[in-house]
Design a protein around this nucleic acid. Sequence first.
DNA 1: TCAAAAGTGTTGTTGATACACCCATGA
DNA 2: TCATGGGTGTATCAACAACACTTTTGA
Lengths: 232, 232
Amino acid sequence: MGPKNQDYSEHPKFHVALDCIIFGFEQGELKLLIHKRRIEPFKGHWSLFGGFLKDKESLTDAANRILRELTGLEKIYMEEIQTYGEIKRDPAARVISVAYYALIPSHRYSDEHSKQYGATWVSLKDLPALIMDHDTMVEKGLMRLRRRASSQPIGFELLPREFTIPQLQTLYEAIYQSELDKRNFRKKILSKDVLIKLEEKDKIHSRKGAFLYRFDKRKYKHLVDGGYNFTI
Amino acid sequence: MGPKNQDYSEHPKFHVALDCIIFGFEQGELKLLIHKRRIEPFKGHWSLFGGFLKDKESLTDAANRILRELTGLEKIYMEEIQTYGEIKRDPAARVISVAYYALIPSHRYSDEHSKQYGATWVSLKDLPALIMDHDTMVEKGLMRLRRRASSQPIGFELLPREFTIPQLQTLYEAIYQSELDKRNFRKKILSKDVLIKLEEKDKIHSRKGAFLYRFDKRKYKHLVDGGYNFTI
DNA sequence: TCAAAAGTGTTGTTGATACACCCATGA
DNA sequence: TCATGGGTGTATCAACAACACTTTTGA
């Protein structure tokens, strides 16, 4: 079992980068966190947040590092989307880039970070053109988000810990870009039995006020362990 | 827009490899094409087929090259699964590996190739332990195969051009590892209206003989272009 | 003539959709 | 008192699951 010291030295090496497709939800809209690139090539053009892989870190470590540096947040929901390896995708040099998508509860994202990194939340509806193959990445990330949203309760990653049913519905409508019937939505989401109804109401968004709910992670985990398949 | 010559030279470089999770279907069983590794480390242990990325090729080119060299076939159904970047995944050196899964119609796979590369079809049921993180890759590839099989008509990639309904059912049963009702299966698959019934029967697998069908790619493409969502 | 696999319809259940009115509240 | 958004129930339809017998043919 002991490996001899084969070093693969006859094979070429490549720069490996990561790009993060960061989704958030603000003012009833699905948004993407982007910035104006500060280095050449494409300096000053809109870009996803990214960075290079370092010697002593795994890919997931690197993605987490980039998100942590940018947002100050730990334990962000994150998933690999795809790896991009076209030869000329970066005109400056050959770079293999692994795209991750991340969901962040935008209310926990502070403006200080935003200023420091020049980060901007942009509504998906008026997204500017992005550099290189970043548009493709976003497209693919959005598809993944839709798929995930319909099979796992990830919507909760984008909302505050306490939220109302109408809020949750607005989120799903933003994700799917289509209107949902509120009676059917409520019925379906409550039938999953993974929401805890709280005593208080949210009185900010309406006069009447809507009851707050919290996602019951324990119950959800229990269901999943029992082979349950969450579906919206 | 003209990039200055930024060369990213302060960032480290890595070996980039590809590993192929190659599924086939033989004798009513779902199989995986593997071999005994010929280089250190892990020489002589069961491994997926893989190889290193070259300077002048994209990731998909590389995956296609590896599959072509191994099978002699072009236009194989192939899809990226995930990229593996743990630091110690290969004890000999740091290697980032992109895992692809591929479906090959095993009847078109010749034994010569098999001998030349020491390739072996192994039933998923009695799969030996594989090196490094290849077990994880296979697990993930299998999940992807199941997901795809239920949303795209990929089953046809694994069968000869002409096949019978019972054959197709056996394939789906092998993929899902569960028995299906033949009346319901036939009803459902025919209702998709993407199979062309032929005049001839296959008389090899039964006395009575079963009608042969062919997948109607044109019709399928037409449906998909019209927004149709194939589902099994 | 019999064993082995192909082929065929109906029924009940469940989940999805469509749809309209009353309620609570702050301004 | 009224405008705004929150909350509720039912009826219809489509998709899915369960289920048993007849047909063909080579040995």
